[in-house]
Simulated scan of single mutants.
Amino acid sequence: MIKNKKILKGLDHTQYEHPFDQKALSTLQSTPGVDLVGNFITKHTIEKIYTVQYTGSNLKVTSENYPKIYEYLQYACQILDLPKVPELYIEWGYSINAFTVGSENPIIVLNSGLIDLCDDDEIMFIIGHECGHIKSNHMLYHMMAQVINICIDSIPFGSIAAAPLQYALYYWDRMSEFTADRAGLLCCQNKAAAIRAFMKMAGMPIKEFNNMNYQTFIQQATEFKQLDYDAMSKVIKFISIADNSHPWTVMRAAELLNWINSSEYNKFNLGETSRLIVDESPKVITRSSDQKMRKNKYLGQ
């Protein structure tokens, strides 16, 4: 891995947090029952259960046994100015997936398929995404979203009483992904790699990895975002993901593209000052800097 990234010394998570995340968190913190679930997690040492589950079944990554993967993690923490390097484990699975569990001592878990199917910067994007959750102090609320069904089962009429809290937790959980995606981009500092990662997560077949057409995916993400102007589409989206922990991959890509094309991203001065935009004709990716438009329709190849 080439160490050519800018180290964001003194980075604070409020500098990149998505406004949807901030608003949803404010709503969540004022929702009745949130303290009850937090106390349940603390009292019943839920984090310990997760720790035993994932450390007892998966491969621990260290500088001795998997030095390159461990270097990804160390470098990501250095870039994002995350002082404590979390433990990292690999579990079997051939989807491109990763997650983080625990609050006091978070653990990052990567699928083995992610390592095989992603290049260096794509892996940095995904590990940076998980480190972003830790950096933004998301983990306690994430654990609440994971165990709320256990909590409400122990309370009479809990499922009815907890409905507003469930909705607030699940909604915030989805919105927090937008913030973590921004952290992933700050970490990999490669817009094309972030788009490639989304395309692979969305279902691109391995045989098509060498034929990625970024234009069509960006066009899809742009058109999906435009659906928000139609009230019925908003209702359909809400019903479809009301109890999901992650927003749709294309929706995440659309939100990240909005940030890339904003002045906020350029404030970090990462050497990627041009915008990713959709040019209606011809069908190529263009850059809105003074550089000459590239004829190749594929970024990063």
Rank of each mutant, 00 (worst) to 15 (best):
F40Q: 11
I41F: 12
I41P: 14
I41C: 15
T42N: 15
T42W: 12
K43I: 15
T45Q: 15
I46N: 03
E47G: 12
K48Y: 08
K48V: 07
K48R: 11
K48P: 00
K48S: 13
I49A: 10
Y50S: 09
T51A: 14
T51V: 08
T51D: 13
Q53F: 08
Q53M: 09
Q53V: 07
Y54G: 00
Y54D: 06
T55R: 13
T55A: 12
G56A: 07
G56F: 08
S57V: 02
N58V: 03
N58K: 09
L59I: 15
L59M: 14
K60D: 03
V61N: 06
T62A: 11
S63E: 10
S63F: 04
E64T: 13
E64R: 12
E64G: 01
E64K: 15
N65P: 08
N65H: 06
Y66S: 07
Y66E: 10
I69F: 02
Y70K: 14
E71K: 07
Y72V: 06
L73G: 12
L73W: 11
L73Y: 12
Q74V: 09
Q74F: 06
A76W: 03
A76R: 00
A76Y: 03
A76M: 00
A76F: 03
A76V: 06
C77Y: 06
Q78M: 06
Q78T: 10
Q78G: 00
I79D: 02
I79L: 05
I79E: 02
L80S: 09
L80W: 11
D81Q: 10
P83M: 10
P83A: 08
P83S: 12
P83D: 09
K84S: 10
V85A: 05
V85Y: 07
V85C: 12
P86H: 03
P86F: 03
P86T: 03
E87S: 14
E87P: 01
E87H: 10
Y89T: 05
Y89K: 04
I90G: 08
E91T: 12
E91Y: 05
E91R: 14
E91V: 05
W92P: 00
W92L: 06
W92E: 09
G93E: 05
G93Q: 04
G93K: 04
Y94P: 00
Y94G: 05
S95H: 11
N97T: 08
N97D: 13
F99L: 01
F99A: 00
T100P: 01
T100M: 00
G102A: 08
S103P: 00
S103N: 14
S103K: 07
E104A: 14
N105C: 02
I107V: 14
I107W: 02
I108W: 03
L110M: 14
N111R: 07
N111H: 15
N111V: 02
S112W: 04
S112Q: 09
G113E: 06
L114V: 01
L114Y: 00
I115Y: 04
I115F: 01
I115L: 14
I115D: 01
I115A: 03
D116R: 08
D116P: 00
C118F: 03
D119P: 05
D119A: 08
D120I: 06
D120W: 09
D120N: 14
D120H: 13
D121Q: 13
E122F: 11
E122A: 12
I123C: 11
I123R: 13
M124R: 06
